[in-house]
């Protein structure tokens, strides 16, 4: 790969996730998956793994698959173990001269399949050190079943299992910091990115993750127009606001060394990100100003900690 990123050249590569899949218009998942797979060198093969998710049911509905590469889906909570099984088979068959050529192993799972039900399987696979990439497309709730809270759902967000009512004010807990937990696994590469701008950040992190030996983890923000309740044309705008408010900072940790990928020229107030989304609408009711203040304080605290860690 040329060291200089060129979007035009990248999008001219043959697509590995083809059009015609059934994801919603304005969904981040398809954009994320296409963006990650684009980082594969043309001559390399891949086996793509999915956890049960919107992505899986939308990209492989029998008898049609949207993937040009080999693909396996087994269940909801085992995509990391599944990927490690494919990688184990590759090692065994290569040792016995039954397979040749470079094959990369890439798992995609939502936040429910990663932060919650697939957490054990993920931790196990990372600890064992399989040569694989695990990508969480994080849309901050169980969207495939119709918008239920996960441990990735941010505080105050309205979901069908953290509703807003006369007493309830959306989710009570803050979002689990999964990226940090993955860093604690001491794996070669962990990064947080988003489908942003010309996709340079997502592309270069995907390339590093795919071509770094050993287990690598990408946490990629993946806005959901249904669950977040925003107009579907605003995917890019919402993503940009998440990054510019520092709600979703972009950083990477290579061999334990933290590096901040992007510092907003002007750090926007968190309400810029919250306001366009229906899931946070109740935070803007009179009397609920404290919610916005607490959300801001939480983002500020996490951001300061990240700046310390990255030495930025």
């Amino acid at each position: 790969m040329s060291t200089v990123y060129n979007l035009k050249r990248e999008v001219e590569k043959p697509a590995r996730l083809t059009g015609g899949h059934r994801l919603c218009a304005g969904c981040g998942a398809g954009v994320v998956v296409a963006g990650v797979l684009r980082a594969l060198n043309n001559e390399d093969r891949a086996v793509v793994v999915n956890a049960t998710s919107c992505l899986e049911v939308s990209t492989f509905m029998y008898p049609y698959t949207a993937y040009m590469d080999s693909f396996i889906h087994s269940a909801f909570e085992n995509s990391a173990a599944t990927c490690s099984g494919v990688e184990a088979a590759y090692n065994a068959l290569q040792r016995r001269g039954k397979v040749d050529g470079t094959v990369k192993f890439i798992t995609f799972a939502g936040d429910g399949g990663t932060y919650d039900i697939g957490f054990q399987s993920l931790s196990g696979a990372m600890e064992r050190g399989h040569d694989m990439v695990y990508v969480c497309y994080d849309n901050e709730a169980y969207m495939n079943t119709g918008i239920q809270r996960s441990s990735s759902t941010p505080r105050f967000a309205r979901t069908t299992t953290s509703p807003v009512g006369s007493v309830g004010q959306g989710k009570k807990q803050n979002k689990k910091d999964l990226t940090e937990i993955l860093v604690a696994h001491n794996i070669p590469y962990v990064a947080q990115t988003a489908p942003l701008g010309n996709f340079k950040d997502l592309h270069s992190k995907s390339y590093k993750a795919i071509y770094t030996e050993g287990p690598c983890f990408l946490n990629i923000l993946s806005p959901c127009p249904r669950g977040w309740d925003y107009p579907m044309a605003k995917l890019a705008e919402i993503t940009k606001l998440a990054v510019d408010t520092c709600v979703w900072p972009l950083f990477e940790v290579e061999e334990g060394v933290w590096h901040l990928s992007y510092t907003p020229k002007k750090k926007l107030p968190v309400e810029e990100f919250l306001r366009p989304q229906g899931r946070f609408r109740h935070m803007f009711q009179p009397g609920n100003e404290w919610m916005i203040a607490e959300a801001q304080a939480y983002v500020d605290q996490k951001w300061e900690r990240l700046l310390e860690r990255t030495g930025a």
């Binding site: 086996v47 396996i72 039954k98």
Partner: peptide, 10 residues
């Protein structure tokens, strides 16, 4: 899960 994936992989 490993057995399923490995067997599917050949």
């Amino acid at each position: 899960s490993v057995c399923i994936a490995a067997q599917a992989a050949g």
